[in-house]
Amino acid sequence: QNEKLANELKSLLDELNVNELATGSLNTYYKRTIKISGQKAMYALKSKDFKKMSEAKYQLQKIYNEIDEA
């Protein structure tokens, strides 16, 4: 289960640069939040902690959705 979550989180991290570029014309909230979420996700992957990875995955998905809707 950890392996599956780690792969999903890696996949979301692969999209980080594209989504970060998409924040160029948006409010600074999005820029700041996506950077923080990305850092948390990288830390969670290194720690291999299921709870941290779950939270990081949720945060990344949430900010990606917010950027898409903005």
Rank of each mutant, 00 (worst) to 15 (best):
Q1P: 09
Q1H: 10
Q1A: 12
N2W: 15
N2Q: 13
N2A: 13
N2T: 15
N2G: 08
N2E: 10
N2C: 14
N2D: 06
E3V: 07
E3S: 07
E3Q: 08
E3M: 10
E3H: 06
K4N: 07
K4E: 09
K4Q: 12
K4W: 08
K4S: 08
K4G: 05
L5D: 01
L5M: 06
A6P: 02
A6R: 09
A6M: 12
A6S: 06
N7C: 12
N7L: 12
N7T: 11
N7I: 10
N7K: 12
N7S: 11
N7V: 08
E8G: 03
E8Y: 05
E8A: 06
L9Q: 00
L9V: 03
L9M: 01
L9S: 00
L9I: 06
L9D: 00
K10L: 09
K10V: 04
K10P: 00
K10D: 02
S11M: 13
S11Q: 12
S11N: 10
S11A: 13
S11D: 09
S11R: 14
L12G: 00
L12A: 02
L12E: 01
L12P: 00
L13E: 00
L13N: 01
L13S: 01
L13F: 03
L13K: 00
L13G: 00
L13C: 02
L13T: 02
D14N: 10
D14K: 12
D14E: 11
E15P: 02
E15W: 14
E15H: 12
E15I: 12
E15T: 07
L16F: 10
L16E: 00
L16Q: 02
L16T: 02
N17R: 14
N17H: 14
V18E: 08
V18L: 13
V18R: 14
V18N: 11
N19F: 15
N19W: 15
N19L: 15
E20A: 13
E20P: 05
E20M: 15
E20V: 15
E20G: 06
L21W: 09
L21N: 06
L21D: 06
L21A: 10
L21S: 06
L21C: 09
A22V: 09
T23V: 08
T23N: 06
T23M: 06
T23S: 09
G24L: 14
G24F: 07
G24R: 15
G24H: 15
G24T: 13
S25F: 11
L26M: 08
L26I: 04
L26W: 05
L26Q: 03
L26Y: 04
N27C: 15
T28H: 13
T28Q: 12
T28M: 12
T28F: 13
T28A: 14
T28R: 12
Y29L: 04
Y29N: 04
Y29F: 05
Y29A: 04
Y29H: 06
K31E: 05
K31C: 09
K31M: 07
K31W: 09
K31F: 07
R32G: 03
R32A: 06
R32P: 02
R32I: 14
R32W: 12
R32K: 11
R32D: 08
T33N: 08
T33L: 15
T33S: 09
T33C: 15
I34T: 01
I34W: 03
I34G: 01
K35W: 12
K35Q: 10
K35I: 10
K35P: 01
K35C: 11
K35A: 09
K35N: 06
I36Y: 08
S37W: 15
S37F: 15
S37Y: 14
S37V: 15
S37N: 10
G38C: 14
G38P: 00
G38H: 10
G38R: 13
Q39P: 02
Q39S: 06
Q39T: 08
Q39F: 09
Q39L: 14
Q39R: 13
Q39V: 10
Q39G: 04
K40E: 07
K40Q: 09
K40H: 06
K40M: 13
A41R: 00
A41I: 02
A41K: 00
A41M: 01
M42W: 11
M42K: 12
M42T: 05
M42A: 09
Y43N: 13
Y43S: 13
Y43C: 13
Y43H: 14
Y43I: 15
Y43V: 14
Y43L: 14
Y43K: 12
A44M: 01
A44E: 02
A44K: 01
A44V: 02
L45G: 01
L45T: 01
L45W: 07
L45H: 03
L45R: 00
L45I: 07
K46M: 13
K46R: 09
K46D: 08
K46C: 09
K46Y: 08
K46P: 01
K46H: 11
K46N: 09
S47E: 07
S47N: 06
S47T: 13
S47P: 00
S47R: 04
S47F: 05
S47Q: 06
S47C: 06
K48W: 05
K48R: 13
D49Q: 03
D49A: 02
D49R: 02
D49M: 03
D49T: 02
F50N: 06
F50A: 07
F50R: 05
F50G: 06
F50P: 11
F50D: 04
F50Q: 06
K51I: 10
K51M: 10
K51G: 08
K51C: 13
K51Y: 08
K51E: 11
K52Q: 10
K52M: 12
K52Y: 05
K52T: 07
K52N: 05
M53K: 00
M53W: 01
M53Y: 04
M53N: 02
M53Q: 00
M53I: 03
M53F: 02
M53A: 01
M53S: 00
M53T: 01
S54L: 15
S54F: 09
S54V: 13
S54G: 05
S54Q: 13
S54P: 02
E55N: 05
E55Q: 08
E55K: 07
E55D: 08
A56N: 00
A56I: 03
A56T: 02
A56Q: 02
A56R: 00
K57I: 15
K57G: 02
K57Y: 14
K57P: 00
K57L: 15
K57M: 12
K57Q: 04
Y58M: 11
Y58D: 12
Q59D: 07
Q59Y: 13
Q59T: 05
Q59S: 07
Q59K: 05
Q59R: 07
L60S: 00
L60P: 00
L60F: 02
L60V: 02
Q61N: 04
Q61R: 05
Q61G: 03
Q61M: 11
Q61K: 07
Q61T: 08
K62Y: 04
I63G: 01
I63H: 01
I63T: 03
I63F: 03
Y64D: 00
Y64G: 02
Y64Q: 06
N65G: 08
N65Y: 11
N65P: 01
E66I: 07
E66C: 10
E66L: 10
E66S: 05
E66T: 04
E66P: 02
I67G: 02
I67F: 03
I67W: 03
I67H: 02
I67C: 02
I67V: 04
I67A: 02
I67E: 01
I67Y: 03
I67S: 02
D68M: 15
D68K: 15
D68I: 15
D68S: 15
E69I: 13
E69H: 13
E69F: 11
E69S: 11
E69C: 10
E69D: 07
A70Y: 07
A70V: 07
A70H: 05
